[in-house]
Design a protein around this nucleic acid. Structure first.
Lengths: 209, 209
DNA sequence: TGATATAGGAAATGATCATTCCCTATATGG
DNA sequence: CCATATAGGGAATGATCATTTCCTATATCA
């Protein structure tokens, strides 16, 4: 999670200006929420990690759920931007899909893999009980699914992917595989194992024999 | 979660016998832990659902973590038995894999899908902070992966799956896809969508063109 | 039958949690 | 320069949490 400012922050008009970097603070919150879950992360933990007092946190984010929602939105913005950057260099749809799979393989092993994906942990912990959160998770999935579908459709138009496959179903299967990699990556798999999964998954782009 | 007694419970030798059905109580705990997560489920919630007092719960399971571990083990036992039953009728390895995918598609939509998978939620919430829990999650994944690998190897020996594919890598990819289906299923997908994922995933068993 | 051992459960305990209060600090607008 | 508005933060607040205590109930064993 680096410097990707998705909230450009126009100059505040009234009152004392904020002293902390919202994005930096949210990145810290993302780390905690991803690793320990929402209910497993206390405000005091967040205050320590974000280097803020509970009072300041509440002033900035309203309540604990507000922190989660802001962290979730930032997580999505950052990850989407990075995924986009990872697939952008490749002109062919097939190569874009491969790059996406490798991008996830990279995030699904080692320390980053163990920390896990905020979308996955939020889906697991809160989607069943909080409709607003569930909607955001659904949107995150739908966005990723649409990105994969675009790649498949591009591949079908540029000739790198057969027109005999169903783009929507393939994209949904890719989404499941990508999310599953993040789950399995929670318990230390090697880069090689995850790279092999990405490689094998490319067969989803082939036509039935 | 029905009547599958994995703890046959030999007749107690000393003291007052337990009055409640451990498996039934754990099934209720599984429902809560799966839907709301570990930290999101209070002992009082568990007491209500299990129809026990907190005192009785602590006598039987030692502490909250003990309930989670017992629930996790039972969840695995029940789901493994059902998966086994689902693929058992099919003699060909390829058909067994298809049955397994359909079994997961069935669990990844509607109410059951929204409740979610206890292995997924435990992995997301606790694997990074509790080594003992992480080991159990890893074992659960390894067991599922091995089951898939056995199906692939069977298929390769019975001729229903090409010997040109790597059984280990394919099994790992299948595991990721199955776990991912449970994640995506947390936010209400239709049976048709998940069935289509299962169908498309069968291409993982084909050789590269 | 009585010693032993375990279960059930109501009530208490102490820790921790999310949240608020209140006061100070620092900006802008007139 | 004073009114207004927002930020920072230390110290309460009240709720809730996991866990324990203690007493009763019910079984086996000798």
């Amino acid at each position: 999670m680096e410097n990707i400012a998705d909230t450009p922050q126009e100059p505040r008009l009234r009152g004392r200006p904020r002293e902390f970097d919202t994005d930096l603070a949210l990145d810290r919150a993302i780390g905690l929420f991803s690793a320990r879950g929402y209910h497993g992360t206390a405000i005091s933990d967040l205050a320590d990690a974000m280097q803020l007092t509970p009072g300041s946190i509440y002033k900035a984010f309203r309540d604990k759920r507000g922190i989660l929602l802001a962290a979730f939105d930032r997580y999505r913005a950052v990850r989407s931007a990075k995924l986009k950057a990872a697939i952008e260099p490749f002109p062919l749809g097939r190569d874009k899909v491969r790059a996406a799979l490798q991008f996830y393989a990279e995030a699904a092993h080692g320390d980053v893999g163990q920390r896990g994906c905020l979308v996955v942990s939020t889906a697991a912990e809160l989607a069943a009980s909080d409709p607003v959160v569930a909607e955001r998770v659904d949107l995150a999935h739908a966005t990723n699914e649409a990105a994969m579908k675009d790649c498949v459709l591009l591949g079908q138009s540029d000739g790198s992917i057969s027109t005999g496959i169903d783009a929507a179903d393939t994209a949904r299967a890719l989404l499941c595989l990508l999310q599953g990699m993040r789950v399995v990556g929670k318990t230390g798999r090697s880069r090689e194992q995850m790279a092999a999964v990405a490689d094998v998954a490319m067969k989803l782009l082939d036509e039935r024999p």
